[in-house]
């Protein structure tokens, strides 16, 4: 008896189907529903929501005393998060790609913070920042630098950047590993050929290593960008958006509006604005990098 086998394409679709169904139910449908909710008013308790047109967007953009601060924080955080941690990670990857003694151990040490849950990172750093008993102020006192003592998480000028330092500590390892993987994929033959042609260390790095790392850099930047725009857990764990909402971020403000204040429409509107910002930044960048790599 002959058994008919599926064409490879059909087989591919069959294998994709379960994942696609899960994706449609748990990712695509909620996304569409959030857009619908952003045009309605619902407190989570009433039986029905009420269609309010663009009102949620109008209120969020013109009357919400927190939204613009959260937007500015999100932009600043994103700019910092795609540059500083990645530059440090790149430097670490270059260093740890050399033949160093205890290289494996050092890699593990720098990667370790990545495996700690964000909320645990927040707790650790909150204690270190404690203005009375924390590590930083204790060290400053011990070193005779009492004038430098700060309310790291209570001063609105410092709080966001204090949280960012904790984020930097916990995220550098992830980018470092990606860069390391990229560096190990750089062809040794090309490097040796360049050296034979008389290229120095900088020239090899600039004209061989860096171009070969292009796809890795793209991935790292896109992941950093997306993660930064949706920054939530570490800020929530360290300051909860305070003091006086000065460390509030768009993703957290959307959650606060919906889940804590029961204003699902406004929360959805903030989410949609965040989604649009993300798409506006990420899609052109991805298209540009794809076009470059195809060329």
């Amino acid at each position: 008896m002959m058994r008919r086998s599926l064409r490879p394409q059909a087989e591919g679709y069959m294998l994709l189907l379960p994942a696609l169904v899960v994706y449609l139910i748990f990712a695509f449908y909620p996304m569409i529903d959030v857009i619908r909710q952003s045009f309605s008013e619902w407190n989570g308790l009433d039986a029905q929501s009420r269609f309010v047109g663009w009102n949620n967007y109008r209120v969020v953009l013109t009357q919400d005393p927190v939204f613009w601060g959260a937007l500015v924080n999100t932009v600043l955080w994103t700019l910092a998060a795609i540059t500083l941690p990645n530059l440090i990670a790149f430097g670490l990857a270059l260093a740890l790609n050399q033949s160093l003694p205890a290289r494996g151990t050092l890699r593990a040490i720098f990667y370790l913070p990545v495996i700690i849950a964000s909320i645990a990172v927040a707790t650790i750093w909150r204690w270190m920042y404690d203005p009375f008993f924390g590590l930083f102020n204790s060290l400053l006192t011990e070193w005779g630098m009492s004038g430098w003592i700060q309310d790291w998480l209570g001063n609105r000028k410092l709080a966001l950047w204090s949280v960012f330092v904790a984020h930097l500590w916990s995220s550098v390892g992830f980018s470092m590993v990606l860069f390391l993987a990229g560096l190990q994929g750089v062809s040794q033959t090309l490097i040796e050929a360049a050296r034979i042609d008389g290229a120095g260390r900088y020239a090899v790095f600039r004209h061989v290593t860096l171009p070969a790392l292009g796809p890795t850099i793209t991935i790292v930047l896109v992941l950093s960008l997306i993660n930064s725009l949706k920054a939530f857990d570490i800020v929530y764990g360290m300051t909860g958006g305070g003091p006086a909402q000065s460390t509030q971020m768009l993703a957290m403000w959307a959650y606060t509006q919906a889940m804590q204040l029961g204003s699902f429409g406004r929360g959805a509107a903030v989410s949609v604005i965040l989604l649009i910002i993300t798409l506006v930044i990420v899609i052109p960048y991805l298209r540009w990098t794809l076009r470059r790599s195809t060329t």
Partner: peptide, 11 residues
Amino acid sequence: LSPFMGIDQAQ
């Protein structure tokens, strides 16, 4: 007692 914005009720 200052600073107080960076501590919680338990502290």
